[in-house]
Structures are given as structure tokens and as C-alpha cells.
Amino acid sequence: MIEILKPVIIITPVLLVLAIGIILFVFKYQRRMLQHQEHVRHLQEIRQRQLLDATIQAEEEERRRVARDLHDEVGAMLALVKLNVHQLTAQSENKESGQQVKKMLDDVMGSVRQISHNLMPVVLEKMGLGQALEAMRRAIPAASGVALTLTCNQPDKRIEPKTELFLYRVVQELLNNTLKHAQASEVQLSLQYSDKDLLLTYQDNGNGFDYNSLSREPNSGGGLGLMNLQARLELLNGKFDFFSALNSGTKAIISVPIS
């Protein structure tokens, strides 16, 4: 009996061991492939972050160059034009039109200075985020009807220049949105430093908008500015929470590590 069963007794365990071996191999191989895929994804993420960082740095560099050109070249040329107009006006009999031209030139120079300042705020580089935001508050035109209240627990504290610049741009974008679309009368901006984090809270009492529907349609183009902010803050490993609904104003809470 044993003789006839020999093939069964020998081959069956071998086949079973082979089957279990194949299953274990597939388990291990699949796990390894998943780990590899995860590693590649991680590398791609790092590369994307580096690319984004480089793009933003290039953008800032370009802004700095345009700001410098506007201030040093266009500003200087306008000052020269103004001087010539002044001399011409002094020699001319029609002083009134000369004064008008000088007034227009003053406006143009003011605009150029403002644009240059917005492109690259000197106060931010020299005195830090708290003071730069204070300067931004003062620069809001009275005609806009918006009053900005700024609170900061350490106005003179300095943090990494890149973080300061990114946060300044974020506030600039939020304030631009408020001035353009929100029809708000009050904006509250709070800057709270702790040992590890910086918490920035921005709130306006404007119209607000349906943020949930906007975020559900990221390709609509409407949320491009907010997506840009989010991308900037991700580079700082920061958190960006945005709340807005129709007739309920807008609130943004931003937290970035500073230690």
C-alpha cells in the first residue's frame, strides 16, 4: 500500500511547501514594491517642494529687482522731470498749469513709491514683520473705508527672513482681497509669538463668500490666490485654516513653526 502511495506522500508536501512559498514571496514582494512606491512618492514630493520654493524665491527676486528699478531709476527720473518743470514754471508766465503738472508728477511719484514699497517692503527687511504690518496698516488709503486693528505681543521680534516675507505676502493677499471684494469696514489682525510657533489671525467683517463650494471646485480659478497662500505656507510647514461664508466675513488662522 505504501509503495503505491509513495508519489502522493512525497510530492504532496513538496507542492504544499511550494504553494506556501509562493504566497509568502508575493506578500513580501508586494510589501517591498509598496515601500518603493512610497519612497518614490516622497522623493517626488520633496522635488515639488524644492521647485515651488525655487519659483517663489525667483518671484521674490524679480519683485525686488523691479522695486529697485522703480525706486532708483523711474523715481530719480521723475524727480528730475519735476525739477525741470519747476524751473520752466518759474520762467513761465502761466504758473497755474505748471503747478498742475507738478501736482500730477507728485501723484505719479507717490504711486511709483507705493508700488515699489509693495513689491519689496524695506521696513520688513530692516525692522521685521510686526513693524512691516504696522506700516501696511498706515498705508491703507482712508478712502477705502477700512480700519485695520493690529495687535502683536512682540512687535520687535525678528524671525527667519523667509518666514517673515511669506507671512507678509499672505497678509498682503488677504488684505487685497478684503479691499477689492469684501466691502468690509473693519479688519482685525493679530500676531502672537510663542516659543515654538507664530499664530497669525486675520478677520474682516465683509461680505464673505461660499468658501466650501469654492474649495470643492479647485479648477474654477476663483480660489487660485488661496491655493497660492496654502502652497507658500506648506513650504514653511505651516497650517492654514480658512473660514468664510456668505454675509459672515472672512477669517484666516495661520500657524507656522518658528523655533
Binding site: 502511495l5 508519489p7 504532496t12 504544499l16 504566497i23
Partner: peptide, 29 residues
């Protein structure tokens, strides 16, 4: 399927031969 079929294939293959030899051999299969 892999374990079940790998384990039973030889028993099915040898069943008729085992049955011809003895009932007990077939029962082992």
C-alpha cells in the same frame, strides 16, 4: 486555491491506481 489544489492534485492523480491496489490506499488519498 493554490494550497488546496497543490495539496489534492497528487491524491486525485493517484486515486484510481490506489483504488486498484487496495481500498485503504484509496482512503489515504
Amino acid at each position: 486555491i493554490l494550497i488546496h489544489k497543490a495539496g489534492t492534485t497528487m491524491s486525485y492523480a493517484m486515486f484510481n491506481a490506489a483504488l486498484a491496489a487496495s481500498y485503504d490506499a484509496a482512503r489515504i488519498c
